[in-house]
Amino acid sequence: MNLRMLSYIERTSAIHRLTGAAKLICFILWSVIAMSTFDTQILAVMLIVGLIVFKMSQIHWREVSFVLTFILIFLLLNDLAIYAFAPQQGTVIYGTSHVVFPLPGRYSLTLEQLFYQLNITIKYFAVTPFALLFIVTTQPSEFAASLNRIGVSYRIAYAVSITLRYIPDVQRSYHEIAQAQQARGVDLSKKAKFGRRMRQAASIIIPLIFSSLDRIEIVSNAMELRRFGKKKKRTWYQERSFTRGDYLAIGITVLLLLLSVWILMKRGSRYYNPFK
């Protein structure tokens, strides 16, 4: 039960104090920069800023370790796949070839390829802290409010928020049902054979589905009784108006975006090339 999924972690930090909408805007801009540029200097700046912001948020790495591990594994696979399918991509981009470690066929390892993949890796690391922070420092309803603010339909935004709201409840009823079935003799431990375990898992899933469906019906009735869906627009109790901090955060991000675009224009290439 100690599995930590991505959910809101309550703290009192400057990052938590930012409004959801500001965080969402920053996150989107930040992703645009990271996706558009291969400039190592910009990416390095982003990485450092990301780490500082993460520190400021008072979130501990272990609290997001589950997702982080997942991202790292994915990153590793991605790097390996790039090397497997395009081992000379770096040479193509930077126009030179410094072989570090000769290997058969086209698989010789070049400095250019290493540098290219380093850039890709930094890209990941530049975005990851922001993505994680946006989710764990924004209260789900504020998250919905901010989605709505940037133009997502409030029905969809609310669906997201209410899903987050009921995840703990469903987890709890899963736990209860699992325990009741175990108390009947269902063996969910690793001792039981896989096929058998799968069949027995059905004895938990089926009641869980039915009790969740019941719940959905009650919730949707309760929502209708309180006029959800009546108007084209709705207001949000958790919505907050922008403060200096919000403007500052968005301002810094926009500056960085402009800087990145300026460098790109000046150089006429997305890549910073140390090999020339």
């Binding site: 309803s141 209410i162 009650i218 919730v219 309180r226 006029r227 009546k230």
Partner: peptide, 19 residues
């Protein structure tokens, strides 16, 4: 199950939000 909001205040506000 009819507690919709994530906090007490938000739940009380639900009908007003929709208005």
């Amino acid at each position: 199950a009819q507690f919709i909001g994530l906090t007490v205040g938000e739940d009380i506000a639900f009908a007003l939000e929709n208005d």
